[in-house]
Design a protein around this nucleic acid. Sequence first.
DNA 1: CTCCAGTCCA
DNA 2: TGGACCGGAG
Length: 183
Amino acid sequence: MLTQNTAWVNVERAIDRLRAAGALTAVELLARPEAEIASLIRPAGYFNVKAVRLRAACRWWLAEAATAASQDTASLRRSLLAVHGIGPETADDILLYAFERPVFVVDAYTRRLFGRFGLPQHDAAYDLLRGWVEGVLGPDVPALGQLHARIVELCKNHCRPRPRCGECPLLATCPRLGVAAGD
DNA sequence: CTCCAGTCCA
DNA sequence: TGGACCGGAG
């Protein structure tokens, strides 16, 4: 939630501050005033809205986490999406990495990379693009996590808004072949 | 579509 | 110094 539209380096600072304040667990975070949480996560930006969202997520965790394991993935996703501040991408992050469910996380990086590779799916609605990747990889949790993580790394280092194709490991197979102009 | 917001870096 | 940052709600 802290990393929603926010650079990861700033998220790490916010997490460090929460940890230093002893507010990294759901119980501890909920025990503090919302204004204090907002102050602690200030480096991550959007701190007022994110403080509200973190509280909502912690309440969900305390109420639902115990029975989450027994729920099927579709039900668990609906439950997560009902939480204020958890949209499709955040829900799938939690499903894949926290609950180890076989889902693919679609993010801005995925759409940018797929678009540059000429895949028509890059514009598709969230669930369509997610389902397409899941169909290609199959219900393989490690593979789904690896692909998402590698897309993130690739797009942070090379496939940026202004492409840095020089050292890109995909240069040989990229349709753009280092045409580093525009997007 | 617009707002939310601090931080980094070319 | 302005764009960009692993989105989501109203």
